[in-house]
Amino acid sequence: MPATDGNRILFHHEGDLTGWTVDRVSITSGEPGLFVYRTENTGGSWSRVRLPIEENWEAEADQDQILASFALKNPSWILLQSKKDGGGSTRKALYARMLQGRRGAGSVICPLWMVP
C-alpha cells in the first residue's frame, strides 16, 4: 500500500496484481484532499492522481460516504456523499476516469456532475 499521512477510506483490488486506494491526505502534506492510488504490480509502485474536488465537504468523506467502481479496461467512477445537514439533506458528487488511449494511459479524472 502507498504510504500516506492521511486516512485510507477505500481499497479495491482486481486480480492478483492490480489495486486501488482512495486516501484523504492531511493539510500537513502540503496537498490536502482526496487521492486515488493505483498499482499494477502488487504494490511494487503506485501512481497517484488528486481527485479534483470542488467543495470542502468532498474532502471530508469517509468510508460510509464513498462508493466507487474501479477497472483497468473500463471507465471507473467515484461517488461522494456529504453528511446530512440539519434538514436531513445530503449532497453528492460523481467523478469518472475517462479513458484516453491504450489501457487507460493518459486517463483523467473529472467531475461529471454535482447534485445539490
Results as ranks from 00 to 15, higher is better:
Asn56Met: 06
Leu51Ser: 06
Asp62Leu: 02
Val25Ser: 05
Thr28Arg: 13
Glu55Thr: 06
Gly43Ile: 04
Thr18Ser: 06
Lys73His: 12
Thr21Cys: 13
Trp57His: 11
Glu31Gln: 00
Arg24Pro: 02
Ala68Pro: 03
Thr39Cys: 04
Thr28Glu: 13
Ala71Arg: 08
Phe35Ser: 06
Thr39Met: 01
Gly15Arg: 11
Val22Cys: 08
Trp57Cys: 05
His13Cys: 07
Asn74Ala: 14
Asp16His: 15
Arg24Met: 06
Ala61Cys: 15
Arg24His: 05
Thr39Arg: 00
Asp16Arg: 15
Ile53Cys: 15
Gly19Pro: 02
Trp20Arg: 03
Gly30Met: 07
Leu72Pro: 02
Gly15Cys: 13
Glu14Leu: 12
Phe70Lys: 06
Ala59Arg: 07
Glu58Asp: 03
Ser45Pro: 02
Phe70Met: 03
Thr28Ser: 14
Val36Ser: 09
Glu55Gln: 11
Leu17Thr: 10
Val36Pro: 06
Phe70Cys: 09
Gly15Asn: 12
Glu54Lys: 10
Leu67Asn: 10
Gly33Ile: 03
Tyr37Glu: 08
Asp16Asn: 15
Lys73Trp: 04
Gln65Phe: 05
Gly15Glu: 08
Ala68Gly: 11
Leu51Met: 14
Ala61Trp: 07
Thr18Tyr: 02
Pro32Phe: 05
Asp64Ala: 14
Gly44Tyr: 09
Ser45Arg: 03
Glu55Asp: 09
Gln63Arg: 15
Lys73Tyr: 11
Ser26Cys: 10
Glu40Arg: 15
Val49Arg: 02
Ala59Trp: 07
Ile53Val: 12
Asn41Thr: 09
Leu67Cys: 07
Arg50Ser: 14
Ser47Ile: 10
Gly15Tyr: 13
Leu17Asp: 13
Asp62Gln: 01
Ile27Gln: 12
Gly33Tyr: 00
Ser29Glu: 11
Lys73Ala: 10
Thr42Phe: 04
Leu34Ile: 08
Ser26Asn: 13
Glu14Phe: 12
Gln63Ile: 11
Phe35Thr: 04
Glu60Val: 10
Trp20Lys: 04
Ser47Ala: 00
Thr39Glu: 00
Arg50Gln: 15
Glu60Lys: 15
Gly43Lys: 03
Arg24Gln: 14
Trp57Gly: 09
Ser26Pro: 01
Asn56Ala: 12
Val22Tyr: 08
Leu34Cys: 13
Thr21Asn: 05
Gly30Arg: 06
Trp46His: 09
Leu17Cys: 09
Glu54Asn: 14
